[in-house]
Amino acid sequence: MTKRQMEWVALAFFAALVMLVFQQIATSMVEQGIASGGAYDNAASYPRAIAIFLGGLIGIQAILLFMKSRSLDAPVRTEGRGRAIALLLVFGGYLMGLNWLGYHLSTAPMALTVMLICGARPGLRLVLVALGMAFGLAFIFEKILSVVLPGGTFGLNIPW
């Protein structure tokens, strides 16, 4: 993928956002009756104004992209990309599963996997580091700062 293509992806992201604003105003806000009237009742006018402003900027940025020099045609950096994707997958999966597995069951395995992705040598030492990390931080927050970490469906919480 070239840098220019990447820039277009970003512009598409912003354009989708603008469209979402207008779609929500036309559906949800009209249904709730908050898309018209004065400052007291009209919740749509302000986001609409910003969306229009953003839309204008998207236009300018698109023109700039067409005009910009060839330096944008260089490919984006790919080295290490696999590691980044793997990290995001593992971390995302961990967060999705947190409600279900709970902090204490899933955190040490997540930390271990991330360290393996980083290329650390597998072994007992690494497992101990992962366990220490997960439970050490949990101890600081749960014991000292009285935070209750998610227990998951099994309701696992440590009475320190």
Partner: peptide, 12 residues
Amino acid sequence: VARAEFPERTVE
């Protein structure tokens, strides 16, 4: 045994 005794941890 401790589990039977409520509360055994922080109540929020």
